[in-house]
Computed example of a mutant assay.
Amino acid sequence: MKLYQIHTKQKLPISLDQAWDFLTDPNNLKLLTPPEMEMTVLYGTERGMYPGQLIEYSVKPLPFFKTNWVTHITQVKDKEYFVDEQMYGPYATWHHKHFISEIPGGTLMEDIVHYRLPMGILGKMVQPFLVKPKLEEIFRFRESALIKKFGVYTAPSDQSSLKQDILN
């Protein structure tokens, strides 16, 4: 089975603390998921994120296919990263690393997802025209949802070079 990867980055105009609090609350996943996927959190949100946590969702990844998805939070480093792995769901393997770091004027969010598809050769055949485009759509939706919630990141201008230009 082939291992596929998705790698995304997004800059957010919020503090590291705000980003961490929002991104580690599983209840916010519904806000970051396209509505047609009918994401519902079923279990596992009674406490803050911690290693060993199990979170169960109901999700409709395709119009004709609804399933439960159980993720296991395997690693958490406060205000730096967390990792979730699918225990049960639509993929043969799902390993999602979420990184955040402080940047001037905000936070950089980076996601690296490695996944394998079930159904052998059939899974491999649908990857380029069904699975990959759907995952890209989900991450584009998430990007726009975060912009809608927090605004567009704008890099702060370098005041020292601006002052230098004025003096010259």
Score class of each variant (00 low, 15 high):
Pro133Thr: 06
Pro156Ala: 15
Met125Ser: 11
Gly120Ser: 09
Asn27Ala: 14
Glu38Thr: 00
Tyr153Val: 01
Arg116Pro: 02
Ala19Gly: 11
Gly106Thr: 02
Val70Leu: 05
Gln159Phe: 01
Met87Cys: 08
Asp78Thr: 15
Tyr50Trp: 10
Leu117Glu: 06
Thr154Trp: 10
Gly106Tyr: 06
Met125Tyr: 04
Ser144Cys: 07
Arg47Pro: 10
Phe64Arg: 09
His114Asp: 03
Gln164Tyr: 10
Tyr81Phe: 14
Leu122Ala: 14
Leu16Ala: 11
Pro13Lys: 02
Val59Trp: 04
Glu143His: 15
Gly106His: 03
Leu12Asp: 12
Gln10Val: 03
Val131Tyr: 04
Ala19Tyr: 01
Tyr91Gln: 11
Gly48Gln: 06
Thr8Asp: 13
Leu12Gln: 10
Leu122Val: 14
Leu122Gly: 07
Lys79Pro: 12
Leu117Val: 07
Lys11Glu: 07
Pro118Phe: 01
Gly106Asn: 04
Ser58Ala: 13
Pro35Gln: 03
Pro26Cys: 08
His72Phe: 13
Pro13Leu: 04
Gly44Val: 08
Pro118Arg: 03
Tyr57Asn: 09
Tyr57Lys: 12
Lys132Pro: 13
Leu31Glu: 11
Tyr91Ser: 12
Ile147Val: 15
Tyr81Cys: 07
Ala145Met: 05
Arg140Trp: 15
Trp94Met: 05
Gly123Cys: 08
Asp78Lys: 14
Pro26Ala: 09
His7Asp: 14
Pro51Phe: 06
Ile100Thr: 05
Thr154Asp: 12
Asp111Asn: 07
Pro51Ile: 12
Pro61Ala: 15
Phe82Ala: 01
Val59Pro: 02
Asp165Met: 12
Leu23Phe: 08
Gly120Lys: 04
Ile166Trp: 10
Asp84Lys: 11
Gly151Ser: 06
Tyr81His: 08
Gln127Tyr: 10
Pro133Phe: 04
Leu108Val: 10
Phe141Ala: 07
Val76Phe: 06
Asn27Phe: 09
Pro156Thr: 04
Gly123Ser: 07
Asp84His: 08
Asn168Pro: 14
Ser160Val: 03
Leu54Pro: 01
Val70Ala: 03
Thr8Gln: 14
Met49Cys: 08
Val152Arg: 12
Val41Gly: 07
Asn168Phe: 13
